[in-house]
Design a protein around this nucleic acid. Structure first.
Length: 712
RNA sequence: GGGCGAUUAGCUCAGUUGGCUAGAGCGCUUCGUUUACACCGAAGAUGUCGGGGGUUCAAGUCCCUCAUCGCCCACCA
């Protein structure tokens, strides 16, 4: 027996094993093709190439790797594709922080210089993140590593844009969009969220009406009053009736409009509209063809239309305007405890300002519908019902998708404007400059527009032979991506390839800390998977990611849990030591006759094999792992090995021989069953296993998954 | 405002088509170092499975209801 078994398991040698696997070439399906007919492919969600892995990635990648290792052992031609995402807005935001530390700012910088700097920044981080993935033992094919800014990805993304534009799925429109004034870019709906806020709600006298508002600073050009047609309080006034109204900066003429959008329950039931700075008001203005004026500039300051308030920022202006209206006797009352939700940027928490801007939009209605149709036809499955509901809700209520971003870190939109700039009538779409006087759109694509192509571009769409792996088997990703990333991949897959890019959608929950709070960078409560690996070893860390992580459920990660699985790796190690010590003197032959007691043990092992196999096939890796833990520790170690000691003392020669043979079968089989979950220790042990009928390959990664007989 | 999820041992959580004498890890008590392992073993304590009602031969598991916590969605000015 190798001397190494006399010492506790040293997980520090894991990186050598990973190297050995890489050198073997078995991560690459091209080296697996012999006799492997069925294909099994998973595309890894590309982590943002701007930092290290977090525990969410840990769960994510571990689950996928378990599936890949399992199916590789089952004889499939397996492919797990790694990659990383440029994560446009997020990365640029992060780099801007770096700039700030250096006392610099992106404003005033040349776009090309900025892009270059961010590119270098990302490249230096990308490598670190890739090392982290290796540390987790993920058996992905690095020869197919992709980045969302690789030339072919950029090219394919642009081609899709051009195709969609030509076929009417993309249009340019002047719409009310979400504007982040601090980062100077527009955002899509899914990049914003609501934050509850306690504020003030003001009631002002407006001619014969009382109007309510939470935002007095936008009200300068409000010249239309909206009431509900059925509102009895305003029955005496006619639709389109005009009023002379004393307002913030003097008298104005206001017009009444009766429309059902007005809510009779809300305040006085009368409201004025500010089309440039409100989605609802904008729609209303379009409906009645009303003038649309900008009040607040792109930096969040008031424009000349505000008169004496010009140049003030929103919060400063609000107080002063209310003060002025109060002096004029127009302030009716202030509700001090007004609870409402403000829309903020998902990533930066900056309050977004609705602004009207010309942007590129994807028309979502038909694309959403075909995605739903494919779901109804059973062309793909969402494994958890809850998420299917959420998904259906989103797809049933599609909002046109703003894909223009005013940042440099991304793929520049292949559209060209002539002379008058961005609002010109003359627009050409295409990769090359259409002629003199045209300048390319400076905007870049929303990150999700390119990453929506991920399953396609990682497989080399449109021409690579790798497209044989399309559609992939399963999309396994965080639950929060069900309405962000997942629908976009489905849409592009259906649009470009007429097929959904994956058969199953498996969503895991969020990783939470000991208090059940979602782990996140901003809260600083994350447990880094790499730190856990350094402290407890990869195998223990992987087990802790998997056990008690059922599909769709949030999972809590604590050091205690990881520590418990470190003990388990030690247990596996010592079981091996005991068994190897005792079987070294016997000849291992398949046709050995087993004693009755051992036949029972092997039958029981058969049950374990079937449980583990069937549960992995059902994506219940959590239950499979837990069951293995229990079997190895409490059946093999506590019962079988203890019983073996008895037999060694008092058994007959035949009984001892039979038991030794049985232990060999148990050990090899257990290692195989454990391998997808705990790849390193199992491979380490496998190397020192004596040659015999159960050791079918040099490396356990390509050894055959144990068979079981359902009828036994 | 709408939707979803959670509530099981002191703590953190499993328990998926109803069959449980309700489990795991950590913690706790007692005993044990006999050549796999003290990163151990043996034995044990701790639970009206959030409250109430219902369906069933049988409910932690299904239904209704209430309570608390959490998450997501939402243009209510």
């Amino acid at each position: 027996m190798n001397q190494k078994f006399l010492q506790p398991y040293q997980f520090s040698e894991e990186s050598d094993i990973y190297k050995e696997w890489e050198d073997s070439g078995y991560f690459n399906p091209d080296n697996l093709s012999k006799g492997r007919i069925k294909k099994y492919c998973i595309v890894m969600p590309p982590p943002n190439a701007n930092g290290r892995l977090h525990s969410g990635h840990g769960t994510d990648f571990t689950l996928k790797d378990i599936l890949i290792r399992f199916y590789r052992m089952k004889g499939y031609q397996t492919l797990l594709i790694p990659g990383s995402d440029h994560a446009g807005f997020e990365t640029q935001g992060q780099y801007e922080k770096e700039l700030k530390k250096q006392g610099r700012s992106r404003f005033g910088m040349d776009d090309k210089d900025l892009y270059k700097e961010i590119f270098d920044f990302v490249m230096s981080h990308k490598h670190i993140m890739e090392e982290d993935i290796k540390k987790l033992g993920i058996s992905c094919d690095w020869s197919r590593n992709k980045f969302t800014l690789d030339k072919d990805v950029v090219s394919t993304t642009c081609d899709t844009f051009i195709k969609m534009y030509n076929e009417g799925f993309i249009y340019r429109g002047k719409r009310c969009i979400h504007w982040n004034p601090k980062f100077q870019t527009s955002l899509s709906d899914i990049e914003t969220k609501f934050k509850d806020e306690k504020g003030k709600f003001y009631y002002f006298k407006y001619g014969p009406f009382v109007i309510g508002t939470a935002r007095p600073e936008t009200k300068f050009s409000d010249k239309y009053i909206i009431v509900h047609p059925d509102d009895k309080r305003y029955k005496k006034y006619k639709n389109k009736q005009k009023f002379s109204v004393e307002w913030i900066n003097g008298p104005i003429e206001a017009t009444l409009i009766k429309d059902e959008v007005a809510n009779m329950e809300m305040g006085s039931g009368a409201m004025t509209i500010t089309p440039w700075h409100s989605q609802v008001d904008f729609d209303l203005a379009c409906k009645y063809d009303l003038p649309i004026e900008q009040i607040i500039d792109w930096n969040g300051k008031l424009l000349p239309i505000a008169g004496e308030f010009e140049g003030l920022n929103i919060s400063a202006a609000r107080e002063k305007i209310v003060e002025k209206l109060k002096k004029k006797g127009l302030l009716v009352k202030i509700d001090e405890n007004y609870e409402h939700a403000v829309r903020v940027c998902d990533r930066t928490n900056v309050v977004v300002e609705p602004q009207v801007k010309s942007q590129w939009f994807v028309k979502m209605d038909n694309l959403s519908k075909s995605s739903l149709d494919a779901l109804d036809e059973g062309r793909y499955k969402i494994l958890t019902k809850t998420h299917e509901k959420i998904f259906r809700h989103w797809m049933n209520n599609p909002i046109d998708w703003n894909i223009s971003r005013q940042i440099v870190w991304g793929i520049q939109i292949p559209a060209w404007f002539k002379d008058k700039g961005l609002d010109t009538e003359e627009i050409k779409v295409g990769k090359d400059c259409p002629g003199d006087g045209f300048i390319q759109d400076t905007d870049t694509f929303d990150t999700w527009f390119s990453s929506g192509h991920w399953p396609l571009v990682t497989l080399g769409y449109p021409n690579s032979s790798d497209m044989e792996f399309y559609p992939t088997q399963v999309m396994e990703t965080g639950a929060d991506l069900i309405f962000k990333w997942v629908p976009r991949m489905i849409i592009f897959g259906l649009y470009l390839k007429k097929e959904v890019p994956f058969k199953d959608i498996y969503l895991h929950g969020m990783t939470q800390d000991a208090k059940g709070v979602k782990m996140s960078k901003s809260k600083g409560n994350g447990l880094s998977p790499v730190d856990l690996v350094d402290e407890f070893g990869t195998d223990a860390t992987r087990m802790s990611f998997v056990v008690a992580t059922p599909p769709g459920m949030n999972t809590i990660l604590t050091k205690d849990k990881v520590r418990a699985y470190k003990k388990f790796t030690n247990k596996v190690w010592n079981i091996t030591r005991f068994i190897l010590e005792n079987i070294k003197d016997i000849e291992l032959k398949e046709d050995k006759i087993y004693q009755e007691k051992d036949i029972k043990i092997l039958k029981n092992l058969n049950t374990e094999i079937s449980f583990v196999t069937e549960h992995i096939e059902k994506y219940r890796m959590d239950l499979a792992a837990e069951r293995l833990y229990h079997y190895v520790w409490h059946d093999v170690a506590d019962k079988i090995l203890e019983d073996t000691k008895e037999i060694f003392k008092t058994g007959t020669k035949e009984e001892i021989q039979s038991r030794k043979q049985t232990l060999y079968v148990i050990l090899t089989t257990s290692l195989k069953l454990l391998h997808p979950f705990m790849p390193f220790i199992t491979e380490t042990i496998w190397k020192d296993l004596p040659e015999g009928f159960m050791k079918d390959e040099k490396l356990i990664i390509i050894s055959k998954w144990p068979n079981y007989d359902k009828n036994k």
